[in-house]
Simulated assay, not measured.
Amino acid sequence: MTAEPQSDATAVSVKLNYATRGMKFPNDPEIIRGRVRKLLRNNQYELKETDAVLRIVKEGDVVMELGAGIGYMSTLVATKRAIKSVHSFEANPNLIPYIQSVHAANGVTNATVTNAVLGKRKGKVDFYVRDDLLGSSMTVLEGEIDPPGIKVDVLNTRQVMKDIAPNVLICDIEGAEVDLIPEMDLTGLRAAVIELHPQWIGPEGVNKVFRAFMEAGLAYYHRGSQGKVVCFRSEW
């Protein structure tokens, strides 16, 4: 499930640190607002993940991104590295047109975005959409009562990995990494950048994610890791 880019969006340049200069983001007040707008203006948006991604992504890579957000990371790798392609999966259908408009505004032609999540088997899953679109998730937060939910497609993880054959993984899926990462066939990856959410998955969940990568032959890469953003790679 995808949507057409918003051709009438007004693009504004936002200069960012870590060689992300020149990326453009359509001025959509429903998405570029509040904290997101402030971080973009102050050159602070996803700084740790940006640094990590630019350290590990190389020319010719096939990148899989889980949790596309505003299309920042997919645009970053497509414009700052001569990658073969980037394939993004985003659960929130309200973000799909915006992501596509970001790609269009930046002349990105080797990126795809799919409105779906990955899982053990195909089907549907509840996804809770919040006023803060980037805070939407598959989890009911503590204190929430009947949050607005929609059904999102679930695609088989192993089949998608087989079809795309990525060698780099970027993942920021609000705690769902604890269940998804161990289900993935990680053996074909050269490197990965994962934003962990220990506040939700706890120490056991963090260990579970680390164990999955280590069993696939990837080691913790300290130079690319900062706080909750951790890198793994198979070469030294």
Score class of each variant (00 low, 15 high):
179 D>F: 13
77 V>K: 09
27 N>M: 04
213 F>Q: 07
221 Y>F: 06
122 K>D: 07
68 A>H: 01
26 P>E: 04
78 A>P: 12
186 L>M: 01
126 D>K: 13
60 G>T: 10
175 G>P: 01
55 R>V: 02
74 S>G: 06
121 R>Y: 08
160 V>M: 11
178 V>Q: 04
174 E>D: 10
42 N>T: 10
10 T>W: 05
122 K>G: 04
52 A>N: 03
12 V>K: 10
25 F>V: 15
76 L>K: 10
152 V>Y: 03
198 P>S: 05
131 D>A: 06
177 E>P: 12
212 A>H: 15
76 L>I: 00
215 E>S: 10
30 E>N: 14
118 L>W: 11
229 V>M: 14
133 L>H: 00
89 F>L: 07
143 G>I: 14
41 R>G: 04
135 G>D: 08
99 I>G: 00
33 R>S: 13
58 K>S: 02
193 V>W: 00
125 V>T: 11
42 N>Y: 07
218 L>V: 00
202 G>V: 08
68 A>R: 01
62 V>H: 11
168 V>P: 00
146 D>Q: 13
101 S>N: 15
42 N>D: 12
8 D>N: 11
158 R>H: 04
55 R>D: 01
90 E>S: 14
7 S>D: 12
152 V>G: 02
35 R>Y: 13
210 F>D: 15
63 V>N: 10
203 P>F: 08
199 Q>Y: 09
71 G>F: 13
16 L>H: 03
44 Q>Y: 13
8 D>I: 15
123 G>L: 02
191 A>V: 03
48 K>Y: 09
176 A>M: 15
53 V>N: 02
208 K>E: 09
12 V>G: 12
19 A>V: 05
4 E>K: 10
101 S>Y: 05
65 E>H: 06
199 Q>H: 12
35 R>G: 13
131 D>T: 12
217 G>I: 05
96 I>S: 00
40 L>W: 01
106 N>Q: 10
133 L>Q: 01
134 L>R: 11
11 A>W: 11
59 E>I: 05
17 N>T: 10
14 V>Q: 03
126 D>C: 15
2 T>Q: 15
115 N>I: 03
114 T>W: 03
66 L>I: 11
25 F>P: 03
233 R>W: 09
219 A>E: 14
92 N>I: 09
178 V>C: 05
225 S>E: 06
48 K>W: 12
157 T>P: 08
197 H>A: 11
195 E>S: 11
34 G>I: 04
17 N>M: 07
11 A>L: 13
194 I>C: 04
195 E>M: 01
18 Y>R: 09
25 F>M: 14
181 I>E: 02
157 T>W: 13
27 N>E: 06
21 R>Q: 12
9 A>V: 06
121 R>K: 05
17 N>Y: 02
82 A>R: 07
199 Q>C: 05
197 H>Q: 07
107 G>P: 01
6 Q>V: 12
132 D>H: 15
145 I>G: 15
79 T>V: 07
193 V>N: 00
151 K>G: 03
159 Q>I: 08
218 L>G: 05
187 T>M: 13
124 K>T: 10
80 K>V: 02
220 Y>P: 14
84 K>C: 00
125 V>P: 01
66 L>M: 08
95 L>G: 03
229 V>W: 07
119 G>D: 09
169 L>S: 04
